[in-house]
Design a protein around this nucleic acid. Sequence first.
DNA 1: CCGGGAATGTAAGGAACCCGACAGTTATAC
DNA 2: GTATAACTGTCGGGTTCCTTACATTCCCGG
Lengths: 228, 228
Amino acid sequence: MEETPADQQHLAWLARSFGRPDYLPLSPEDLSTLSEAGEIIKKYPGTHIFKEGDSATAAFLIREGEVDLYRGPTDQREVVGRVGPGAVIGDIAMFSGQPYISSSRAVGHVTAFRFDRDRLLPKLAVSPAITLRWLVASLTQLERTQRRVLNLMHKTVLAQVAGLLVNEADDRGEVALSQATIATLLGASRQSVNEALNELKRRGQVETGYRLVRVLDEKKLRLVAAED
Amino acid sequence: MEETPADQQHLAWLARSFGRPDYLPLSPEDLSTLSEAGEIIKKYPGTHIFKEGDSATAAFLIREGEVDLYRGPTDQREVVGRVGPGAVIGDIAMFSGQPYISSSRAVGHVTAFRFDRDRLLPKLAVSPAITLRWLVASLTQLERTQRRVLNLMHKTVLAQVAGLLVNEADDRGEVALSQATIATLLGASRQSVNEALNELKRRGQVETGYRLVRVLDEKKLRLVAAED
DNA sequence: CCGGGAATGTAAGGAACCCGACAGTTATAC
DNA sequence: GTATAACTGTCGGGTTCCTTACATTCCCGG
C-alpha cells in the first residue's frame, strides 16, 4: 500500500488525537485500519453534522473548526458543549445503538473524520489496541464531565466564569464566545455572566470585546475559579 | 479447565453486568479470560475499597451491596455518587494510569470482582469483544453523567429530588438514604431537601421515615421531575 | 454610510436556596 | 436500658441569582 505525504500527516494526526500518546501508542497498521473505516468530510458554518433523534450510524472525529452540541427544539435549544479539534462526537449513540442524544452544528468551517458504524465495528473487533485507546479517551471525557458536575454544584457564577475562561482560552488567551453562549454553557443567565465579567474586568484580570474575552492574568483567574 | 456450578453462575453474572446483553454478547472464552484477571473480594460495611490518591492498580465490578463514592478529606467529604451491583468503579484511574480520583467505601456488605491492571491489560489486548463491551459501558455512564449535568443546571430542588427518588427506588419503591445523603448527592442543602420532601408528602406522592423514603405515586413523581 | 439585527451594559424586584440554630425523634452501642 | 450519636423537622435572616425591562453599542450587508 502506497501512502502520500498527506495521508501520513493525517495518520499521525489521528494518533495524536486519541488520549495520551505515551499510553499504548497505535501502530502504523492500526492507523491504516482506522482510516479505512470512514472518510474525511467538510461542513460549512451553521450546517448540521447530525441531529438529535437521527439513527446513529456514524461517529465523528473533529479535525478542524469548532462544533456546538445542543439538545431540544431549535427555538429553545440548550447548548450542551462546544468542542474543537481532537474531540470525538456521536460515539455514545453509535456504540450503544441508540439515536443521537444531541444535535451538532458547525460553528465555523469544520473538517472531520466520519467513522461508519458498519465499517468500524469489524475493524475494532480485530484491533484491540484501538478499542482500548478509544476506551481510555471516553473515560477521560467521563472524568472531565464528573468534574464539571462538582463545579456546577457548589461554585458561584463568578468562579464558574473564571474556570470556563481558563479552560476555553486559546494560545493567545482569547475566548471567542458571546456572553449569551457562555451563559448557556454554564447554565446561568446572560446578566449574571455579564456581571461576573465586569467584576473580573474591574480587577484587571480580563478584557472584553464584541464576542470576545481576553484573559490577562491566568494565574489569578485560576485562583478565582478555585474559590468557594 | 474444570468449572464448578458457582463459577458458571459467576461467569453468567459477569455477562449480564456489562451493558445490554443483546449487544455483542461475550463468548464463553471471553468470560474465562476476564475471570482470570482478578479475584472476588469481600468488604465489610464502612471499609474502603480504595482511597483517593492511591496508585490505581485495579478496577472493581460490584456484585453485591452498595458503595459510596466521595472526594475530599474525611471530615468534609463530598459524596460523588452511590453505586450498586453491575457498576464498575476505579476504571477511569486504572486505565489512564493516574491515582484514584475518589474514595470508595462499602455501605453494607459488599462483594466485588477485582481486576488487576497488570493481568487485565494483556487479556484485553487479545480480547476486543470485552474491550468493546467495556467501552460501551463507560459511554453509557458518560451519557448518564451528562444528563445529570443538565438536571443540575436548570431544575429546582423539588424536581431534582423527585428525579432522584424515581431513579434510586428499589422494586418496593423504597429509597434507603438519609436526607443529608440525598442533599449531597444533589448538591443541595439538607433543609431544602427536607422542604421538598414535605411538599411531595403533602401531595401524597411519597411517605418518609427514618433513613427512608417510599415512593407512592411514581407516575406523578416523574412528571414533577420533568417540570421546570 | 447607514439601517437593522445582534450583542453588551444596567437596574429593580422577587424567588430559590443556603446557613445557623435548636427542638424533637430514632437507632445503636455499651 | 440507658446514653449517645445520628437523623428529622422547623424557623428566620441573608445571599445569590433569575426575570423583566430598556438603553446603548457594535457589526455587517446593501
